[in-house]
Every structure is written in C-alpha cells, then in structure tokens.
Design a protein around this nucleic acid. Structure first.
Lengths: 222, 222
DNA sequence: AATAATAATTAGTTCGGACTAAATTTACCC
DNA sequence: GGGTAAATTTAGTCCGAACTAATTATTATT
C-alpha cells in the first residue's frame, strides 16, 4: 500500500485527469484556473509530482502535464470516491443532484477503502452517479463513454439522456424542472442554424435550449 | 458564522475537552500524549488558542489549560460529529462498535452542518452513540451523566450497562463476546478485595473482570 | 532549604504548499 | 523574421504547525 497522498495532491491529480481525458495535456494556466491557485504554484507542484516515486505525472517545461499510469490510478480513486459519495448522499440522505457536489468534495479525501467498499456494496455497486457520470470501477478502470452531446442532434432524432456534465447548481435545478434528468427519453423538435438552439421535448414538457446548455448534456442516440 | 477552524485546532479542543470534563485543567504533557505531538508543540498551539478572538482556551504558563465557553462549543461540535458518525456508520453501513472510531475520526472534521442535520434526522436524533456515550445535542449542550463505574459495585447489586469508555478495539470485541454491551442488565456475583476483581453476570454469561476493565464500564445502578 | 527530577516553555529550524514579482519562453501577427 | 502579448517558470517570501535543543519553573526528596 503506497504512502497516502495529501489532499492537495489528490486535487491536482483529479483535475489533471479531467483536463486530459482525451489524451491532451493540461496547461499550467488551465490547471491553475480549475484549482483556484496561481499558475506559479501549479508549476512548482507539478515539478514535484513528476519527480516523486513513483512519478505521478509526466511534465516538461512549457509542454503541459499528463498523468502516468500511477497518477491516473490515484485520480480514478478520488473520482470513484467522489461519485460513490454523491450517489450515496442522494440515495440515502435525500440530497438533490444540485446539492451533493460540495459535500462529496470534502469527504472524497478522507474516506477509507473500507468505507468505500461498504457504501458501494450497500448501494449494489452503482455504475453511474446522480449526474449520469460513470463511476470508476473498484479496479480503477473507467468504462468508456459512447454518448454524444445533445448539441449534435437534429430534428426528429430521439435519444436517452445519459449524463449532465459541467453544470452548476442553478442549471441542474432548471434541467430537473424540465424533466431533463439521466434516463429520460427525449426528442428533438426543431433546430435553429443561426444560434444552434434546439427545441427538445422530454415527457410532456418541451423547451428551447441554447448551445451553452446542449453541449453539457450527453445522450445516447436511439 | 465564525471562520472555520483547522483540523488540528479541532483536535486540540476535543482532547482538551476530554481531559477537563470534570473541571480539572489539562496539562501540557497529557495533551501532548493524547495528540501524539511533542509538549513544545502543545505549548505553542495553546498560546495561540488563548490569544485568538474569540479566545478558545484559558491558559497561564505552567498552569495547564481549560476551555472557554467558545472553545467548549467548538469541542462539542466536533464530538457531536464524531458520535453521530459512529452511530450512523454502525447503523447504516454495518460497522461494528470496535471498527468505527478511526473512520469517524477523519470524517468528523469535514462534514457540513447540512450533513450533520441529515444524518441526525435520518436516525431519529439518537441520544447515545454505539459505545453508550451521550451525543451532544444540536444546541451543543452535553446531557449530564449520572452513571458510575462498574468497579464501584459490589455483590448482589444489579445495574444496566450505560457506556464503555476508553476501551481499545480488542477489549470492545471481548466485551461484546461476553454480552457486555450498552443496554444489558448485569448482576455482580462476587468481589475480591485483594485485586478488586468482580465476577459479573449478563444474560447467560458471566466473567471475572479486573479493575483495568471495570473502571472503563459505566452503569446505572438499579 | 537545597537539590535533584520532572514538567513546561522558549528559541530557532523544517516542511509543505501557497503567494508575488521578476525573468524567460513560446506563440502569433505583420 | 522581429516584436509584442500571453503563458510559463524561477526566485524568494510567508504561514501554519510540527520538530529539537536548550532553558526555566515547579515539585518532590531528603
């Protein structure tokens, strides 16, 4: 069992993971932004992570940073904690999907492996969290995601909403009020080529959604 | 809402509370021992706590330390978190009473007020934790405890076991195997004036317990 | 009451992880 | 291809909370 990482290291790895999911490398600035820290601090931290044994990131100056295999495992561990916690806060303590993030964020760093196993088991090993994101498996692999952004759909296409990604609490509440939650089936009614707005119907409700919303909603086309 | 305390400050206050429950003052050494920190570090920290606004402890050199009203509130807040968490880990995640302490210890510092309210409500506002200790109320008052140590009982007295205090995991497992858990009724069968051993019967089981055990078990005499 | 033993405090250091300011590298544009 | 803007890195500082070593206070012993 490798010596346990500090909270801030865990946060760095998690955010690097999120910035590099598609193989790109994360820039100092982008990382600083996400972590709410100055770029200079990122540089220093990242240098340390690259030098630690085992190395957690690969880094060369001015070239951004990517995770090593070890770093990715550590990141997935934190993300698994986070998403299991969100799921479990919603299911057993009555949080709504717009409320869970903050609390999960603080808890994710301090729960034990035992605790992780127990909540996973109690919930029957859920595969997705309340926002529809995949929960990394106990073996720390991430299922591959074949969903596409809602913004890619056109009239007459139908789809199942899989996941809402990068939405703040206000938007989440709004989507919920429109019935746009993971699992619902929806149909695209109209498309405006000027502003890329989509008119979408889910259940009995329909609404016109802008690009800033539709690119945060991921669906499986039916 | 006062600016939130660091984890180590919370730990200091919690341990000071535990050392001073009966109005005594906590010595630098005793505190260092409990916190697993050098006495010099305690002195420095305690000086800071005495100078902060509001002051959290009263302190004069070489005279030990006691909590102010503010300090006591902060300590009870942490203790409430800890005991609610222990109760809830046992009730909903199937921990046993000898396993909960460590996990609760790390979680107690990071849960939100909202989380605290929710688990308290879900459990129906429990009054005691799995070891039988009182859980400080939401208003941060501590119910007064009229239990006495089992070591004070003599043959033919019967009592209800209220609380086991200061026992390690091994002892807790042992007591459980003897049916000595909070709530059980017990009877003292024999007393040995030489070594202060008590023979105690609970349910169908009986056992001879030494002073090192009987002074950790608190009972209400019937 | 003097001294030895114990407890507590001070002074000064370290370490992690942030910061600012200054220097440097890369990227882009004409 | 030079020059400026933006991104990044370096150098040096700070802060909290621990540490060690050295000093001072208190307590106990005779």
């Amino acid at each position: 069992m490798e010596h346990t990482l500090t909270i801030s290291v865990q946060d760095y790895l998690k955010h690097i993971y999120e910035l590099t999911e598609n193989g790109e490398n994360a820039s100092t600035n982008a990382l600083a932004e996400k972590l709410d820290v100055k770029p200079a601090s990122v540089t220093v931290m990242v240098q340390k992570l690259a030098l630690s044994t085992p190395a957690l990131v690969e880094y060369q100056k001015h070239q951004g940073v990517t995770l090593t295999k070890e770093g990715r495992k550590a990141a997935l561990e934190v993300i698994r904690h986070h998403r299991l916690l969100e799921t479990w806060l919603v299911r057993t303590l009555g949080y709504s999907w717009d409320e869970v993030h903050e609390d999960a964020e603080r808890l994710e760093h301090v729960i034990s492996e035992d605790f992780e196993r127990r909540i996973a088991a109690v919930m029957g090993h859920p595969v997705r969290d309340p926002h529809g994101e995949f929960i990394p498996t106990a073996e720390l692999t991430m299922p591959l995601d074949d969903s596409v952004p809602l913004s890619a759909l056109r009239p007459n296409q139908t789809a199942m909403l899989q996941c809402v990604r990068g939405a703040d609490a206000e938007l989440l509440r709004h989507l919920e009020s429109l019935g746009l939650v993971p699992g619902v089936h929806l149909e695209v009614l109209e498309y405006s080529p000027f502003d890329h707005n989509l008119m979408v119907k889910a259940g009995s409700k329909s609404a016109v959604l802008g690009l800033n919303v539709t690119h945060k909603i991921f669906v499986e086309v039916l």
